[in-house]
Structure formats: structure tokens, C-alpha cells
Computed example of a mutant assay.
Amino acid sequence: MLDDLELDNLEVSTLAKRPGVKWALATARGALPGWIADMDFPVAEPIRNALTEAVHSDLGYPVWDDGVTANPLVEAFVERMTTRYGYAPQPEHVRVFTEVIQALQAVLHVATQPGDAVAMHTPAYPPFVQTLEKMDRRLVPIPMVDTEDGWFFDADRLAADVAQHGCRALILVNPHNPSGRVFSRGELSALAEVAQRHDLLVIADEIHAELAYEPHQHVPFATLAPDVAARTVTLTSASKAFNLAGLRCSVADVAPACVRAALDALPPLLLGQPGSLGVFGTLAAWRHGESWLTEVRALLDRNRQLVAAGLPPAVRHHLPEATYLAWLDWRALGLGDDPAATLLTGSRVMLSSGPDFGPGGQGYARLNFATSEPVLTEILRRLREIGS
């Protein structure tokens, strides 16, 4: 368990000494960080203990390198999916990667060709936008629409655009980054109908699934129906919910047989693989980190309410249904296409740049609110200054 006093008394002077990119880059620019998706909370004790034990005992080649023993993450992933969502992936379909972005790129590499069209909700996680550009895959946007009731998308427009552009794949980020939407079963079913009608491979990034707030419930895309699961590659990791990005470890349920065969045909170490510490840390998170996650989720729930109450009145924003990220519309304040640049110099707060999220990002900036209350309060105070 976390100590609430320890957590809510995290001081800037202490956090600024951290070597990670979140604080190091912001501190170098004289700003407070509200950008990259890392949390400031201490690592869960079971994870610390598991990593310490590994360091003190054996950092040699892991037993699963023998080519016979299964990576223990396979069983842990199947257990977690079954327990939390009632979905049991076939163990022989599971593959282990270093991170979700690597898995996405590997799947796109073996399952699509340069020039192929790929549909994805926009605005979108910047590394995914950059991946499509770098791999010469054509982005077909599924625009998220800002309504009085929150963020939605037009399924009929998606169907028409998929047909017009001859899409080969759909990248589904659910819960959605940056809007924080948790797509409903009805929305996912509409996506599934389009995917089936046009024979799309679905790559479902569900890395934020465990950070959904009540009453919102994450529905894994592969649980909709067996024929939907058969065309879906589900990507996840403990890195967001347990703040373990630096351990470089993720898991994929690669249900389509043709994609599995193509991945397995690659030279075995071409893509690299997670180290032992990534595996041990993820195992500890999934099997022993539940009380930590419950407490952190409560703190994040509190923080998203603080953001909603503490933003400048002219900034438009919908309370996120999941994640620790707030997607902020600064256009009414006339801060230009990239308000994060203005806020960095004017408010000394470092946010994620809206235009980096592709279509629909102009005039927006993303705020990471996964920090202690005093730090978040100061970030919001600085942001209000520019709106006054």
C-alpha cells in the first residue's frame, strides 16, 4: 500500500532530481511537467521487492531462453484477462514484446504493405501517428467529435471512409488516448461490423484498460464474438497502470493465425525482447499489485476532479473516463495551433503538444495529472494565470 502522506507530500525539489525524461526535460526548461505519460507515484512495494530479489539472486539468462519453457508472462496474462474480463486468450497465441509500440510496428510490418490504408481514431497517440508516417501507411482518420455529452465518433462515416480508401487495418486505442473515452459495447460493435464487412485486421491497444473510472467499464474488443477475436491482435502492458515504462515489457494476444505465422517467421531476435527485470516486474504487478492499483486509481479519480475544477474557465475539457490524461481545448484563448509552446514559456508548465496528435490536435494540449495534489495544484495555478 502507498502512504497517503508520502504520496501527497511529494515535493518539486525531490521530484526534480529524478533521472527520467518526464522531470529531467521539464526541469531543464524551468517548468513543471504535465506532459509524457509517466506517473510520479512511488513504485508498488511488491514490484520493488521482486526487482530487488532478482538483482540480488540471478541476472543470468532466464530459464525461458531454453526454447522449451514458456515465458511466465503468458500464463499471467491469460489469468489476468480471464479474471478481469472473462476472456481467456489461447496461450499459444500470446507473444511477448518490449513495448506496445514495438508490437504495433511488428504487426504492421508483417500484415500490411507500404501504401496500405490504416484507420485510426484521431487525435491519436503521437508515436502511432509517427509510426504510420515512417512506415508509409496511409492514415484514414476516424475523427473524434466533441459534443456536449463528450467525445464520440461517426460509425457511418468510418464505414464509408474504409470503403473509399480500401483500408487493410484498424488501430483501436481503447481507452482512447488523448480523449480519455472508454468506448461502449455498442461503439465497439459498430467498429466490429465495419471490420468484418471489409475484412480488416484490428490492432487493439488496450494499455489503459485498468485505469477506467466507475461507472465506466473496459470491454476488450476480442470479447465481442469469436469471429471478432479471430481478426484481432490485442496489445497491453503493465507499464501505464503500474508506471513501469522503463522496464520495456508488453504482451500481445495474436489471434489471427496468418499474423502469428508471419511474426514467427522473422529471425528470433530481430525485434529484441524484454529483459528478465521487465518480466519479473510485470509478474509482480499483475499478481501482487492490486491494492496499490486500487489506491492509485482513487487518487487519479480525485485528481481528474481537481483538473475539472481548476482549469481556466475558457478551456474546454471533458472529464476523462479513463487514463490520467486530460485533453484540453485552448482555442478560445487564442494561443495558436500549439498552445503547449505558449504555456511552456508563459506559464512554465510543460504539456504535450496538440499538433503532435495528428488531425484534430491543433489548438489543444494534453495534461498528465498523475502527480501529488500540491504539484497538481501548482500546475493548475500556473495555467490559470494565462487565462486571466
Rank of each mutant, 00 (worst) to 15 (best):
Q305Y: 03
G166N: 12
G289A: 03
N177R: 06
G310W: 03
L306T: 05
D65M: 13
Y125K: 12
S13M: 12
D156I: 11
P175A: 13
S57K: 10
L380M: 12
L32M: 06
V12H: 06
A370F: 04
L32F: 07
D329T: 06
S237V: 00
T223F: 09
A159G: 03
H165A: 12
F128H: 15
T236R: 01
V140A: 07
P355A: 11
T294F: 13
Y364V: 01
I207D: 01
L270F: 04
K17S: 12
P374F: 07
S353C: 15
I36Y: 13
P320D: 13
L188P: 02
E79R: 13
G86W: 03
V107K: 04
H109E: 15
L5R: 02
V55F: 14
P220M: 00
T69N: 04
F41L: 08
G30Q: 01
A332W: 08
E187N: 08
A252N: 03
R304Q: 08
E75L: 01
M1I: 01
A50E: 06
V96P: 05
S291E: 14
T236V: 07
W151S: 09
S388F: 10
L325W: 11
F41P: 01
F221P: 00
V55R: 15
A332C: 02
Y324H: 12
E385C: 10
A169F: 10
A103N: 02
V78Y: 00
V202G: 02
V254Y: 00
L132F: 06
E290V: 00
H56R: 15
T223D: 02
M81T: 06
Q273N: 10
D66E: 09
Q305D: 12
G30Y: 00
L283E: 03
T345S: 14
I386Y: 04
R138V: 11
P123V: 07
H208K: 02
P123E: 03
G363K: 02
A245N: 01
P123L: 02
R302C: 05
R381D: 15
L15T: 13
G360W: 06
R316I: 14
A308M: 15
D58C: 07
G67P: 00
T52G: 08
A106K: 06
T14R: 13
N303M: 11
A225E: 00
S388I: 11
A284H: 02
F152K: 14
S276H: 14
S57H: 13
G180K: 05
M81C: 14
E99Y: 15
G150I: 10
W151R: 05
A37M: 08
E45D: 14
A314C: 10
E133R: 15
I47W: 11
L15I: 07
A209F: 01
R304F: 12
H198N: 14
R185S: 09
W327E: 08
D161H: 06
L376H: 08
W151Q: 14
S250W: 05
K22N: 03
H216S: 15
Y85I: 02
A212H: 09
F357P: 00
V96A: 04
A88R: 11
L376S: 07
D58Y: 14
M350W: 08
R366N: 12
P320R: 11
L32A: 03
Q102R: 11
R84Q: 15
R287T: 14
Y324W: 11
V107M: 05
S276Y: 10
